[in-house]
Design a protein around this nucleic acid. Structure first.
Lengths: 403, 403
DNA sequence: CCAAGTTACTTCGCGCCTAAAAATAAGCCT
DNA sequence: AGGCTTATTTTTAGGCGCGAAGTAACTTGG
């Protein structure tokens, strides 16, 4: 971490951020509790919360009676201070959701989309954003930001650029395009696996863990690695390409062209392909989701073998992550991950134990994901919230959108 | 990152740290340059450096003539402010080195050790520390800290505990033992691969990279992952067990008991074992180092095949790291890594390219390590230095040892 | 040799900041 | 009602970085 110089203003900003984050994550708290949990003096906690109340970021939320003293007044983040929007760009459609600052869902729009073309996607996003706003009567000016979860990797620079081989996107300047389609609030474009990981960390099975690995098994596989509470991004925001790590050197050819990638063994697509091969059939399923369900519940020896092998590969893949990252928690999510995990979690855990080193394995807890089907959108919506919390909502820093 | 409350004192501490770090890493600088490079105002840079000069942390280092103005006075970290000691606990012996604060080596002691037994190791370390001090006449009180690089993983708690399956250490409270053997300065126990990675980052091929992966190939293989300039440790400091990630599912049995670990293919021991098997010989080499040299320079088809295969496995293993961490730089080190890399770096790079995703691969530069055989000791010695720099050498914080 | 010019560094006053102490608010209990 | 307890606000004190205004230490050009 390259630390940099700080001024007295940064102090205030940081302490605002600390208080705001504590209130956001741990619900209503009194100034007293805030002082205790953050380490700030009661005086400072009081001054700063007073400021935040004046600015409309906080509101009072009742009081707790005491046993013989002045009752403590509870404070919480003002849900009406602003709104955030989360967008899930999937391979079959686009979901746009509007939340208030307490992350209560106010409106949802689903738009199916056959062919994923950047211009069409941008326009659908802009339309969806307009729709959720008019449906709820929320003013565009109250939107703190729009988070967008996309497939593929996102390169962050002055403006986010998306690379997604599977849908044929090569260096698509999506942020610029969405802006040009008419979306005004600040944009936060991020890989969908990472936004889903974020959702799992804040609201799901990752809560409370500082070091966690969120494994997402869908058609393919992905991972979000959280270190010290922060999603790991690497030098150019491309980190976390777990699906294309080699796990069977010289093995099956993956759609990325390389042999032996984990994704050639452990995603829903790979499982179904291996099943087809075992049965010498050659007709790809129309609906992966129900095909996987059928495979998982089949009692045929072939199906059972395919599933058991998949569990082995997945366990080895998870063990690699455990060895490399030494997390306290592994969360297994994604639609296929949840379907497989619902039936085979113990076997997956056992396979992980077989392949991981004893010591890091001993530190980890492996759980199923607990976020719903809109986890990508929820996670995307948390991005502007995180930005607000991290900045301490500093009223002195220039804000692009007028809120 | 869990940010925490800050006081006005933390400000000064942080700015001291920033200045001190800039001076340590980028050699002598004038107050003027410091002000420009850190962003601190000239006034503050001057005040703080004045303080640091008074405390003896900095010294003047000549001046640069100007073209028509007051010449700038150069400042640098005072090499004589204190000393640091680095210890390398290897499988064949213990090396203790003394450095001044400019990391100039003042004295070295090598002590061979056959059987690596914790008590004996602790006593040898204490003896070595005493020896380098008396040899140079440096007072124990001027030693800022002793860094110790050990095989295996180090669990940091109130006192460091070492787990090293390969040498039969299971939860050895090494820090406590070294202390009891009579070493007084603050101790910093860390995994040897990580200390070597640290050395490579500060003084070797990793310089300037914020995100890097230091790959160490010796008898086995290890890695140090650097994220944002900081060595990644995970929840319990066990992160980075690359050697025991599965790369050939169901493959060769590794000494850890699992099948298909990278270490069963890519370290010197594995290469020699595979060569022996190919030749149907059964006599382990007495000296791995010269045996590997012989293997690498052999022109026999069998030797060439073993080496080429190893290059492939190693490349795939590196590609996994590139995909997962998206580093800007990969440094290949370790005695076997350097030996192999000296002859086959291009092939290793090509094998990495074959297995990595195009995009993250496009961001990375793969280089040979540039630190010498005492990299582990040098890296260990940097640990107390890093602690000093990070703390801003705050004279107000209580110090255990009297310096 | 001296004055003017130039650049590096210091000093001082201001506006902020947090902490500690003191004061005040708002309940409970008898 | 009065004492007691606890929460919050106000006051005061000690720090900090910055900008402006000096001051120091040279070079240059006559």
């Amino acid at each position: 971490m390259v630390r940099t110089r700080a001024t007295v203003r940064d102090l205030r900003k940081q302490n605002r951020s600390v208080l705001l984050t504590a209130l956001f994550l741990d619900g209503p708290l009194s100034r007293q509790q805030l002082s205790a949990s953050t380490g700030l003096s009661a005086a400072t906690a009081s001054t700063i919360t007073g400021e935040l109340l004046d600015e409309g970021l906080l509101v009072e939320a009742g009081s707790v009676e005491s046993d013989g003293g002045r009752p403590r007044v509870l404070l919480r983040v003002n849900p009406a201070f602003g709104h955030v929007i989360g967008v899930d760009v999937g391979e079959t459609g686009i979901k746009v959701e509007l939340f208030d600052l307490a992350m209560t869902r106010l409106s949802t729009v689903d738009q199916p989309l056959g062919f994923v073309e950047p211009v069409a996607v941008s326009e659908l996003i802009a339309a969806g954003v307009g729709e959720v706003l008019t449906a709820t009567g929320v003013a565009a000016s109250s939107v703190l930001g729009v988070g967008v979860g996309v497939p593929g990797t996102v390169e962050r620079g002055t403006s986010a650029v998306v690379h997604a081989q599977t849908i044929g996107w090569d260096a698509v300047p999506l942020e610029k395009m969405i802006r040009e389609a008419g979306v005004e609030p600040p944009l936060f474009v991020e890989n969908g696996a990472k936004t889903q990981g974020q959702a799992e960390m804040w609201f799901g099975a990752g809560r409370g863990a500082g070091h966690a690995v969120i494994v997402l098994v869908g058609s393919g596989v992905g991972v979000a690695v959280v270190t010290d509470g922060v999603v790991h991004r690497g030098a150019t925001s491309n980190a976390g390409e777990w699906g294309h790590t080699t796990i069977v050197y010289g093995g099956r050819r993956c759609r990325c062209g390389v042999r032996g990638c984990l994704e050639a063994y452990a995603g829903a697509e790979a499982m179904l392909a291996r099943y087809r091969e075992a049965l010498r059939r050659n007709d790809p399923e129309a609906d992966q989701q129900s095909a996987l369900e059928a495979l998982l519940s089949s009692r045929s020896a072939v199906a059972r073998r395919v599933v058991d092998e998949s569990v082995g590969y997945l366990g080895a893949g998870i063990a690699n992550l455990v060895n490399l990252f030494n997390p306290e928690r592994v969360v297994l999510g994604g639609w296929a991950g949840l379907a497989l995990g619902a039936r085979k979690l113990d076997e997956i855990v056992a396979a992980t134990a077989d392949h991981a080193l004893r010591h890091p394995y001993g530190q980890v807890r492996i759980e199923l994901g607990r976020t719903g089907p809109d986890a990508v959108a929820v996670g995307a919506a948390t991005l502007p919230v995180a930005a607000l919390l991290d900045s301490g909502a500093d009223p002195r820093s220039a804000r692009v959108s007028g809120f």
